[in-house]
Design a protein around this nucleic acid. Sequence first.
DNA 1: GCATGATCATGC
DNA 2: GCATGATCATGC
Length: 475
Amino acid sequence: MIAESRYDKTDRNSILGHALLLLGKSISELYPNIGTHSGKGSLGQIVEEKHFDYHPNSLSQPDFPEAGVELKCTPMKTLSNGNTVSKERLVLNIINYEKEGSTSFETSSFWQKNKFLLLMFYLYEQGLKPEEMFFSIIRYWDFPQEDLKIIIDDWNIIIKKIRDGKADTLSEGDTLFLGACMKGSAAGAELRKQFVKNAPEAQQRAYSLKSIYLNHIIVDSILNSTVINVSLDKKKKFEIIRKCEKIREESSNAIKSINEYKEGETFEDAIINKFVPYYNKSISEIQAMIGRNISLSAKDFAYSVARLILDVKTKKIAEFEKAGVILKTIQLENNGRLKESMSFKNINYLEIIKENVWEDSYWYSVISSRFLFVVFQKGENKNPILKKVFFWGMPVSDYVESQRYWNDTRNKIVDGDFSHFLKSTENNISHVRPKGKNSNDLTEDANGTMQRKYCYWFNRRYILSILENNGIFTE
DNA sequence: GCATGATCATGC
DNA sequence: GCATGATCATGC
Protein backbone atom coordinates (compact mmCIF):
# COMPACT_ATOMS: atom_id res chain seq x y z
CA MET A 1 0.00 0.00 0.00
CA ILE A 2 2.72 2.40 1.02
CA ALA A 3 4.88 1.31 -1.88
CA GLU A 4 2.11 1.90 -4.34
CA SER A 5 1.86 5.53 -3.37
CA ARG A 6 5.57 5.95 -4.09
CA TYR A 7 5.25 5.46 -7.82
CA ASP A 8 2.73 5.84 -10.57
CA LYS A 9 2.12 2.49 -12.17
CA THR A 10 0.67 4.09 -15.27
CA ASP A 11 3.87 6.03 -16.00
CA ARG A 12 7.01 4.48 -17.43
CA ASN A 13 9.37 7.06 -15.99
CA SER A 14 7.90 6.66 -12.56
CA ILE A 15 8.10 2.85 -12.71
CA LEU A 16 11.75 2.95 -13.81
CA GLY A 17 12.56 5.49 -11.12
CA HIS A 18 11.07 3.21 -8.50
CA ALA A 19 12.91 0.17 -9.88
CA LEU A 20 16.18 2.10 -9.71
CA LEU A 21 15.94 2.36 -5.93
CA LEU A 22 17.26 -1.20 -6.04
CA LEU A 23 20.26 -0.48 -8.27
CA GLY A 24 23.43 -1.67 -6.55
CA LYS A 25 21.35 -2.96 -3.66
CA SER A 26 19.67 -6.14 -2.57
CA ILE A 27 16.09 -6.51 -1.37
CA SER A 28 17.20 -7.16 2.20
CA GLU A 29 19.39 -4.05 2.12
CA LEU A 30 16.48 -1.86 1.06
CA TYR A 31 13.93 -3.62 3.26
CA PRO A 32 15.81 -4.82 6.35
CA ASN A 33 12.57 -5.60 8.16
CA ILE A 34 10.88 -7.96 5.76
CA GLY A 35 12.81 -10.90 7.15
CA THR A 36 13.77 -13.87 5.06
CA HIS A 37 11.30 -15.60 2.89
CA SER A 38 12.28 -19.17 2.93
CA GLY A 39 12.50 -21.37 -0.09
CA LYS A 40 9.63 -20.61 -2.36
CA GLY A 41 9.28 -17.52 -4.43
CA SER A 42 11.89 -16.46 -6.89
CA LEU A 43 13.47 -13.08 -6.56
CA GLY A 44 11.09 -11.82 -9.23
CA GLN A 45 8.09 -12.54 -7.02
CA ILE A 46 9.71 -10.88 -4.03
CA VAL A 47 10.43 -7.75 -6.07
CA GLU A 48 6.90 -7.60 -7.40
CA GLU A 49 5.33 -8.08 -4.00
CA LYS A 50 7.68 -6.23 -1.68
CA HIS A 51 9.11 -3.48 -3.84
CA PHE A 52 6.29 -2.78 -6.27
CA ASP A 53 3.50 -3.89 -3.95
CA TYR A 54 2.06 -5.66 -6.93
CA HIS A 55 0.54 -9.10 -6.91
CA PRO A 56 1.82 -11.44 -9.57
CA ASN A 57 -0.83 -12.72 -11.91
CA SER A 58 -0.90 -14.94 -14.89
CA LEU A 59 -2.83 -12.63 -17.15
CA SER A 60 -1.95 -12.27 -20.78
CA GLN A 61 -1.37 -8.54 -20.24
CA PRO A 62 1.98 -7.07 -19.18
CA ASP A 63 2.51 -6.58 -15.43
CA PHE A 64 1.81 -2.86 -15.68
CA PRO A 65 -0.93 -2.79 -18.31
CA GLU A 66 -1.50 0.96 -18.46
CA ALA A 67 2.19 1.62 -19.03
CA GLY A 68 2.65 -1.49 -21.15
CA VAL A 69 5.59 -2.69 -19.09
CA GLU A 70 6.49 -6.30 -18.30
CA LEU A 71 8.82 -6.65 -15.28
CA LYS A 72 11.50 -9.35 -15.33
CA CYS A 73 14.27 -10.18 -12.88
CA THR A 74 17.05 -12.35 -14.24
CA PRO A 75 20.42 -13.53 -12.92
CA MET A 76 23.93 -12.90 -14.24
CA LYS A 77 26.99 -14.81 -13.12
CA THR A 78 30.72 -14.23 -13.17
CA LEU A 79 32.75 -16.88 -14.94
CA SER A 80 36.15 -18.03 -13.74
CA ASN A 81 37.73 -15.88 -16.48
CA GLY A 82 36.04 -12.81 -15.01
CA ASN A 83 33.42 -12.32 -17.69
CA THR A 84 29.91 -11.48 -16.59
CA VAL A 85 27.26 -13.37 -18.52
CA SER A 86 23.63 -14.38 -18.28
CA LYS A 87 23.18 -17.29 -15.89
CA GLU A 88 20.14 -18.74 -17.58
CA ARG A 89 17.51 -18.14 -20.21
CA LEU A 90 14.79 -15.65 -19.30
CA VAL A 91 11.53 -17.54 -19.12
CA LEU A 92 8.50 -15.61 -20.36
CA ASN A 93 4.89 -16.70 -20.62
CA ILE A 94 3.69 -20.28 -21.05
CA ILE A 95 2.50 -21.11 -24.53
CA ASN A 96 -1.09 -22.22 -24.81
CA TYR A 97 -0.74 -24.30 -27.98
CA GLU A 98 -4.48 -24.44 -28.59
CA LYS A 99 -4.83 -20.66 -28.65
CA GLU A 100 -1.42 -19.62 -29.93
CA GLY A 101 -1.84 -21.51 -33.19
CA SER A 102 -4.34 -19.00 -34.50
CA THR A 103 -2.36 -15.85 -33.69
CA SER A 104 -0.11 -13.66 -35.80
CA PHE A 105 3.17 -12.31 -34.42
CA GLU A 106 1.46 -9.03 -33.52
CA THR A 107 -1.36 -10.77 -31.67
CA SER A 108 0.77 -13.57 -30.22
CA SER A 109 0.94 -13.97 -26.47
CA PHE A 110 4.69 -13.39 -26.66
CA TRP A 111 4.38 -9.99 -28.27
CA GLN A 112 1.26 -8.90 -26.39
CA LYS A 113 2.92 -9.49 -23.04
CA ASN A 114 6.63 -8.90 -23.63
CA LYS A 115 7.06 -6.20 -26.22
CA PHE A 116 8.47 -3.73 -23.69
CA LEU A 117 10.46 -5.13 -20.80
CA LEU A 118 11.75 -3.69 -17.57
CA LEU A 119 14.83 -5.84 -17.01
CA MET A 120 16.43 -6.13 -13.59
CA PHE A 121 19.65 -8.15 -13.79
CA TYR A 122 21.06 -9.31 -10.48
CA LEU A 123 24.38 -10.92 -9.75
CA TYR A 124 23.89 -14.54 -8.74
CA GLU A 125 26.21 -15.90 -6.10
CA GLN A 126 26.08 -19.40 -4.77
CA GLY A 127 25.09 -19.54 -1.12
CA LEU A 128 23.23 -16.24 -1.05
CA LYS A 129 19.49 -16.08 -0.57
CA PRO A 130 17.57 -14.45 -3.41
CA GLU A 131 16.84 -11.37 -1.34
CA GLU A 132 20.56 -10.94 -0.63
CA MET A 133 21.66 -10.74 -4.26
CA PHE A 134 22.21 -7.27 -5.62
CA PHE A 135 20.91 -5.67 -8.77
CA SER A 136 23.57 -4.62 -11.26
CA ILE A 137 21.65 -3.58 -14.35
CA ILE A 138 18.18 -2.05 -14.36
CA ARG A 139 16.81 -0.82 -17.66
CA TYR A 140 14.02 -0.87 -20.16
CA TRP A 141 14.42 -3.10 -23.20
CA ASP A 142 12.61 -2.12 -26.35
CA PHE A 143 13.52 -4.73 -28.99
CA PRO A 144 15.60 -3.03 -31.72
CA GLN A 145 14.35 -3.52 -35.27
CA GLU A 146 17.39 -5.53 -36.35
CA ASP A 147 16.94 -7.99 -33.48
CA LEU A 148 13.23 -8.17 -34.09
CA LYS A 149 13.78 -9.49 -37.58
CA ILE A 150 15.48 -12.56 -36.14
CA ILE A 151 12.98 -12.89 -33.32
CA ILE A 152 10.13 -12.93 -35.84
CA ASP A 153 11.93 -15.65 -37.81
CA ASP A 154 12.24 -17.59 -34.56
CA TRP A 155 8.59 -17.07 -33.74
CA ASN A 156 7.59 -18.32 -37.18
CA ILE A 157 9.59 -21.51 -36.66
CA ILE A 158 7.90 -22.11 -33.31
CA ILE A 159 4.42 -21.29 -34.53
CA LYS A 160 4.78 -23.54 -37.57
CA LYS A 161 5.39 -26.55 -35.36
CA ILE A 162 2.44 -25.57 -33.20
CA ARG A 163 0.11 -25.14 -36.19
CA ASP A 164 1.29 -28.43 -37.69
CA GLY A 165 0.48 -30.26 -34.45
CA LYS A 166 4.16 -30.90 -33.87
CA ALA A 167 4.58 -28.99 -30.62
CA ASP A 168 5.91 -32.24 -29.12
CA THR A 169 9.02 -31.81 -31.30
CA LEU A 170 9.76 -28.21 -30.26
CA SER A 171 13.35 -27.72 -29.16
CA GLU A 172 15.46 -24.80 -28.01
CA GLY A 173 17.87 -25.73 -30.79
CA ASP A 174 15.24 -24.75 -33.37
CA THR A 175 15.77 -21.04 -32.92
CA LEU A 176 18.33 -18.30 -32.31
CA PHE A 177 17.14 -15.59 -29.89
CA LEU A 178 13.57 -16.52 -28.95
CA GLY A 179 13.19 -20.04 -27.62
CA ALA A 180 10.43 -22.38 -26.58
CA CYS A 181 11.89 -23.83 -23.38
CA MET A 182 10.49 -26.56 -21.18
CA LYS A 183 8.47 -25.31 -18.28
CA GLY A 184 7.13 -27.47 -15.48
CA SER A 185 8.29 -29.72 -12.75
CA ALA A 186 9.76 -32.56 -14.76
CA ALA A 187 10.22 -33.25 -18.42
CA GLY A 188 7.15 -35.03 -19.67
CA ALA A 189 5.28 -34.50 -16.44
CA GLU A 190 3.25 -31.54 -17.62
CA LEU A 191 1.57 -32.14 -20.90
CA ARG A 192 -0.74 -29.83 -22.79
CA LYS A 193 -3.22 -30.25 -25.58
CA GLN A 194 -2.10 -29.20 -29.02
CA PHE A 195 -3.56 -26.86 -31.63
CA VAL A 196 -4.31 -29.80 -33.88
CA LYS A 197 -7.03 -31.84 -32.24
CA ASN A 198 -5.73 -35.39 -32.61
CA ALA A 199 -2.02 -34.58 -32.13
CA PRO A 200 -0.36 -36.15 -29.08
CA GLU A 201 -0.20 -33.99 -25.98
CA ALA A 202 3.05 -32.06 -25.83
CA GLN A 203 5.47 -31.03 -23.09
CA GLN A 204 4.48 -27.67 -21.65
CA ARG A 205 6.73 -24.90 -22.91
CA ALA A 206 7.19 -21.19 -22.42
CA TYR A 207 8.63 -18.50 -24.64
CA SER A 208 12.10 -17.53 -23.49
CA LEU A 209 14.92 -15.20 -24.39
CA LYS A 210 17.99 -17.34 -24.87
CA SER A 211 21.14 -16.64 -22.87
CA ILE A 212 23.01 -15.64 -25.99
CA TYR A 213 20.54 -12.81 -26.52
CA LEU A 214 20.65 -11.76 -22.87
CA ASN A 215 24.44 -11.55 -23.17
CA HIS A 216 23.93 -9.14 -26.01
CA ILE A 217 21.72 -7.02 -23.73
CA ILE A 218 24.30 -7.19 -20.92
CA VAL A 219 27.09 -6.02 -23.23
CA ASP A 220 24.90 -3.25 -24.57
CA SER A 221 24.08 -2.17 -21.03
CA ILE A 222 27.65 -2.05 -19.79
CA LEU A 223 28.83 -0.13 -22.83
CA ASN A 224 26.02 2.37 -22.45
CA SER A 225 26.35 2.55 -18.71
CA THR A 226 26.11 6.34 -18.68
CA VAL A 227 22.56 6.17 -19.94
CA ILE A 228 21.62 2.68 -18.85
CA ASN A 229 21.74 2.02 -15.16
CA VAL A 230 24.54 -0.30 -14.30
CA SER A 231 26.15 -0.79 -10.94
CA LEU A 232 29.44 -2.63 -10.84
CA ASP A 233 32.59 -1.68 -9.00
CA LYS A 234 34.77 0.66 -11.04
CA LYS A 235 37.72 -1.60 -11.65
CA LYS A 236 35.50 -4.42 -12.75
CA LYS A 237 33.43 -2.13 -14.93
CA PHE A 238 36.56 -0.87 -16.66
CA GLU A 239 37.74 -4.41 -17.37
CA ILE A 240 34.39 -5.47 -18.70
CA ILE A 241 34.08 -2.40 -20.89
CA ARG A 242 37.41 -3.15 -22.53
CA LYS A 243 36.32 -6.68 -23.28
CA CYS A 244 32.91 -5.59 -24.42
CA GLU A 245 33.98 -2.95 -26.87
CA LYS A 246 35.36 -5.51 -29.24
CA ILE A 247 32.37 -7.77 -28.79
CA ARG A 248 30.04 -4.90 -29.57
CA GLU A 249 31.87 -4.03 -32.74
CA GLU A 250 31.73 -7.63 -33.86
CA SER A 251 28.15 -8.12 -32.89
CA SER A 252 26.95 -4.98 -34.60
CA ASN A 253 28.71 -6.13 -37.75
CA ALA A 254 27.14 -9.51 -37.23
CA ILE A 255 23.67 -8.06 -36.90
CA LYS A 256 24.24 -6.04 -40.03
CA SER A 257 25.29 -9.06 -42.01
CA ILE A 258 22.53 -11.21 -40.58
CA ASN A 259 20.14 -8.55 -41.77
CA GLU A 260 21.58 -8.38 -45.23
CA TYR A 261 19.37 -11.24 -46.32
CA LYS A 262 16.50 -10.66 -48.65
CA GLU A 263 12.81 -10.60 -47.91
CA GLY A 264 11.40 -14.08 -47.61
CA GLU A 265 14.84 -15.53 -46.95
CA THR A 266 15.67 -16.72 -43.46
CA PHE A 267 19.01 -16.33 -41.73
CA GLU A 268 19.67 -20.00 -42.38
CA ASP A 269 18.81 -19.78 -46.09
CA ALA A 270 21.18 -16.85 -46.40
CA ILE A 271 24.06 -18.76 -44.82
CA ILE A 272 23.48 -21.88 -46.88
CA ASN A 273 23.31 -19.80 -50.04
CA LYS A 274 26.79 -18.49 -49.27
CA PHE A 275 28.09 -22.06 -49.52
CA VAL A 276 26.09 -23.33 -52.48
CA PRO A 277 28.36 -21.84 -55.21
CA TYR A 278 31.22 -23.92 -53.80
CA TYR A 279 29.46 -27.29 -53.71
CA ASN A 280 31.56 -30.03 -55.33
CA LYS A 281 34.57 -27.73 -55.52
CA SER A 282 37.89 -28.69 -54.00
CA ILE A 283 39.49 -26.45 -51.41
CA SER A 284 42.07 -25.27 -53.91
CA GLU A 285 39.31 -24.37 -56.37
CA ILE A 286 37.46 -22.58 -53.57
CA GLN A 287 40.54 -20.55 -52.73
CA ALA A 288 41.01 -19.66 -56.39
CA MET A 289 37.35 -18.62 -56.74
CA ILE A 290 37.59 -16.40 -53.69
CA GLY A 291 41.04 -15.15 -54.61
CA ARG A 292 42.62 -15.73 -51.22
CA ASN A 293 44.98 -18.36 -49.98
CA ILE A 294 44.96 -19.59 -46.43
CA SER A 295 47.16 -21.92 -44.51
CA LEU A 296 45.95 -25.49 -44.75
CA SER A 297 48.56 -27.12 -42.56
CA ALA A 298 46.57 -27.08 -39.32
CA LYS A 299 44.13 -29.77 -38.38
CA ASP A 300 41.32 -27.28 -38.55
CA PHE A 301 41.91 -26.32 -42.19
CA ALA A 302 38.33 -27.24 -43.14
CA TYR A 303 37.13 -24.79 -40.52
CA SER A 304 39.39 -22.16 -42.10
CA VAL A 305 37.88 -22.84 -45.50
CA ALA A 306 34.39 -22.43 -44.06
CA ARG A 307 35.45 -19.10 -42.54
CA LEU A 308 36.86 -18.06 -45.90
CA ILE A 309 33.51 -18.76 -47.58
CA LEU A 310 31.69 -16.84 -44.86
CA ASP A 311 34.22 -14.02 -45.29
CA VAL A 312 35.10 -14.04 -41.61
CA LYS A 313 38.64 -13.09 -40.72
CA THR A 314 38.67 -13.78 -37.00
CA LYS A 315 38.81 -17.23 -35.52
CA LYS A 316 35.56 -16.77 -33.70
CA ILE A 317 32.65 -16.22 -36.00
CA ALA A 318 30.84 -13.32 -34.39
CA GLU A 319 27.86 -13.69 -36.64
CA PHE A 320 27.33 -17.20 -35.39
CA GLU A 321 28.33 -16.54 -31.84
CA LYS A 322 25.68 -13.89 -31.53
CA ALA A 323 23.15 -16.20 -33.10
CA GLY A 324 24.29 -19.09 -30.90
CA VAL A 325 25.10 -21.22 -33.93
CA ILE A 326 27.94 -23.71 -33.67
CA LEU A 327 29.92 -24.31 -36.86
CA LYS A 328 31.39 -27.79 -37.20
CA THR A 329 33.16 -29.37 -40.13
CA ILE A 330 32.95 -33.05 -40.98
CA GLN A 331 35.48 -34.76 -43.17
CA LEU A 332 34.56 -37.95 -45.01
CA GLU A 333 37.12 -40.32 -46.46
CA ASN A 334 37.56 -40.76 -50.18
CA ASN A 335 35.13 -43.68 -50.13
CA GLY A 336 32.59 -41.80 -48.02
CA ARG A 337 33.51 -43.34 -44.68
CA LEU A 338 33.55 -41.28 -41.50
CA LYS A 339 36.64 -41.86 -39.38
CA GLU A 340 36.41 -39.39 -36.56
CA SER A 341 34.16 -38.46 -33.69
CA MET A 342 33.56 -34.76 -33.08
CA SER A 343 35.28 -32.89 -30.27
CA PHE A 344 34.07 -29.86 -28.38
CA LYS A 345 35.59 -27.61 -25.75
CA ASN A 346 37.63 -28.86 -22.87
CA ILE A 347 35.58 -29.61 -19.78
CA ASN A 348 36.01 -26.75 -17.34
CA TYR A 349 36.29 -28.68 -14.06
CA LEU A 350 35.68 -25.60 -11.91
CA GLU A 351 32.55 -24.55 -13.80
CA ILE A 352 30.86 -27.92 -14.29
CA ILE A 353 30.68 -28.64 -10.57
CA LYS A 354 28.84 -25.35 -10.13
CA GLU A 355 26.26 -26.37 -12.72
CA ASN A 356 23.45 -27.44 -10.44
CA VAL A 357 20.73 -27.46 -13.04
CA TRP A 358 20.95 -29.36 -16.33
CA GLU A 359 19.21 -26.66 -18.33
CA ASP A 360 21.78 -24.10 -17.15
CA SER A 361 24.81 -26.25 -17.90
CA TYR A 362 27.42 -25.61 -20.56
CA TRP A 363 26.68 -28.92 -22.24
CA TYR A 364 22.96 -28.17 -22.41
CA SER A 365 23.75 -24.85 -24.08
CA VAL A 366 25.77 -26.77 -26.67
CA ILE A 367 23.27 -29.51 -27.42
CA SER A 368 20.36 -27.07 -27.57
CA SER A 369 22.22 -24.84 -30.05
CA ARG A 370 21.68 -24.68 -33.76
CA PHE A 371 24.54 -26.36 -35.58
CA LEU A 372 25.87 -25.64 -39.02
CA PHE A 373 27.55 -28.75 -40.38
CA VAL A 374 29.93 -28.24 -43.28
CA VAL A 375 30.72 -31.58 -44.90
CA PHE A 376 33.87 -32.21 -46.94
CA GLN A 377 34.94 -35.39 -48.64
CA LYS A 378 38.54 -36.25 -49.37
CA GLY A 379 39.33 -36.14 -53.06
CA GLU A 380 42.52 -36.54 -55.05
CA ASN A 381 45.83 -35.43 -53.54
CA LYS A 382 44.48 -34.51 -50.16
CA ASN A 383 42.26 -31.95 -51.81
CA PRO A 384 38.91 -32.23 -50.06
CA ILE A 385 35.69 -31.32 -51.83
CA LEU A 386 32.81 -29.40 -50.28
CA LYS A 387 29.91 -31.82 -50.31
CA LYS A 388 27.04 -30.28 -48.42
CA VAL A 389 26.11 -27.76 -45.74
CA PHE A 390 23.12 -28.04 -43.45
CA PHE A 391 21.67 -26.71 -40.21
CA TRP A 392 20.76 -29.12 -37.47
CA GLY A 393 19.27 -29.07 -34.00
CA MET A 394 19.37 -32.05 -31.67
CA PRO A 395 15.93 -33.71 -31.51
CA VAL A 396 14.38 -33.37 -28.07
CA SER A 397 14.15 -37.15 -27.91
CA ASP A 398 17.96 -37.18 -27.50
CA TYR A 399 18.03 -34.76 -24.59
CA VAL A 400 17.55 -37.42 -21.92
CA GLU A 401 20.60 -39.37 -23.10
CA SER A 402 22.60 -36.13 -23.23
CA GLN A 403 21.52 -35.27 -19.72
CA ARG A 404 22.62 -38.70 -18.50
CA TYR A 405 26.03 -38.10 -20.08
CA TRP A 406 26.43 -34.66 -18.48
CA ASN A 407 25.21 -35.92 -15.13
CA ASP A 408 27.58 -38.87 -15.12
CA THR A 409 30.53 -36.70 -16.15
CA ARG A 410 29.71 -34.03 -13.60
CA ASN A 411 29.28 -36.55 -10.76
CA LYS A 412 32.64 -38.12 -11.53
CA ILE A 413 34.38 -34.74 -11.55
CA VAL A 414 32.71 -33.83 -8.25
CA ASP A 415 34.03 -37.12 -6.83
CA GLY A 416 37.49 -36.50 -8.29
CA ASP A 417 37.21 -39.63 -10.43
CA PHE A 418 38.88 -38.86 -13.76
CA SER A 419 39.41 -42.46 -14.84
CA HIS A 420 35.94 -43.77 -15.57
CA PHE A 421 34.24 -41.29 -17.85
CA LEU A 422 31.59 -42.60 -20.24
CA LYS A 423 32.97 -44.23 -23.37
CA SER A 424 31.31 -44.10 -26.75
CA THR A 425 29.98 -47.59 -26.15
CA GLU A 426 28.30 -46.48 -22.94
CA ASN A 427 26.25 -43.55 -24.24
CA ASN A 428 24.41 -43.31 -27.54
CA ILE A 429 25.40 -39.73 -28.18
CA SER A 430 28.53 -38.61 -26.42
CA HIS A 431 31.70 -39.70 -24.71
CA VAL A 432 34.60 -38.07 -22.84
CA ARG A 433 38.13 -38.16 -24.20
CA PRO A 434 41.44 -36.43 -23.56
CA LYS A 435 42.37 -33.22 -25.31
CA GLY A 436 45.57 -31.43 -24.52
CA LYS A 437 48.96 -30.45 -25.77
CA ASN A 438 50.16 -33.90 -24.73
CA SER A 439 49.51 -36.38 -21.97
CA ASN A 440 51.35 -34.17 -19.48
CA ASP A 441 49.12 -31.19 -20.14
CA LEU A 442 47.34 -30.79 -16.80
CA THR A 443 44.89 -28.42 -15.17
CA GLU A 444 43.67 -28.01 -11.63
CA ASP A 445 40.34 -29.39 -10.43
CA ALA A 446 38.24 -28.08 -7.55
CA ASN A 447 40.17 -30.19 -5.03
CA GLY A 448 43.42 -28.57 -6.12
CA THR A 449 44.59 -31.77 -7.79
CA MET A 450 46.23 -31.54 -11.20
CA GLN A 451 44.24 -33.52 -13.76
CA ARG A 452 44.53 -34.46 -17.39
CA LYS A 453 42.54 -32.30 -19.78
CA TYR A 454 39.44 -33.96 -21.17
CA CYS A 455 36.77 -32.69 -23.51
CA TYR A 456 33.21 -33.34 -24.65
CA TRP A 457 32.66 -35.42 -27.78
CA PHE A 458 29.86 -36.52 -30.08
CA ASN A 459 30.20 -40.20 -30.93
CA ARG A 460 31.18 -41.15 -34.44
CA ARG A 461 28.03 -43.24 -34.75
CA TYR A 462 25.88 -40.32 -33.71
CA ILE A 463 27.44 -38.10 -36.39
CA LEU A 464 26.76 -40.90 -38.88
CA SER A 465 23.08 -40.91 -37.97
CA ILE A 466 22.91 -37.12 -38.36
CA LEU A 467 24.50 -37.40 -41.81
CA GLU A 468 22.07 -40.11 -42.86
CA ASN A 469 19.09 -38.10 -41.68
CA ASN A 470 20.31 -35.26 -43.86
CA GLY A 471 20.67 -37.23 -47.04
CA ILE A 472 24.38 -38.01 -46.82
CA PHE A 473 24.91 -41.72 -47.07
CA THR A 474 28.19 -43.08 -45.88
CA GLU A 475 29.71 -46.46 -46.52
C1' DG B 1 37.33 -51.35 -38.65
C1' DC B 2 36.73 -49.14 -34.60
C1' DA B 3 37.43 -47.06 -30.11
C1' DT B 4 40.25 -44.29 -27.64
C1' DG B 5 44.57 -42.23 -26.21
C1' DA B 6 47.74 -38.67 -28.00
C1' DT B 7 48.90 -34.68 -30.32
C1' DC B 8 49.04 -30.40 -33.79
C1' DA B 9 48.94 -25.56 -35.84
C1' DT B 10 46.76 -21.49 -34.97
C1' DG B 11 45.12 -17.13 -33.12
C1' DC B 12 44.15 -14.28 -29.41
C1' DG C 1 50.45 -19.55 -22.72
C1' DC C 2 46.67 -21.91 -23.74
C1' DA C 3 42.15 -23.12 -25.50
C1' DT C 4 40.29 -24.50 -29.84
C1' DG C 5 38.91 -27.08 -33.91
C1' DA C 6 40.60 -30.86 -35.25
C1' DT C 7 43.34 -35.29 -36.96
C1' DC C 8 46.96 -38.74 -36.02
C1' DA C 9 48.38 -43.16 -34.06
C1' DT C 10 47.90 -47.34 -31.72
C1' DG C 11 46.01 -51.62 -30.16
C1' DC C 12 42.47 -54.81 -30.09
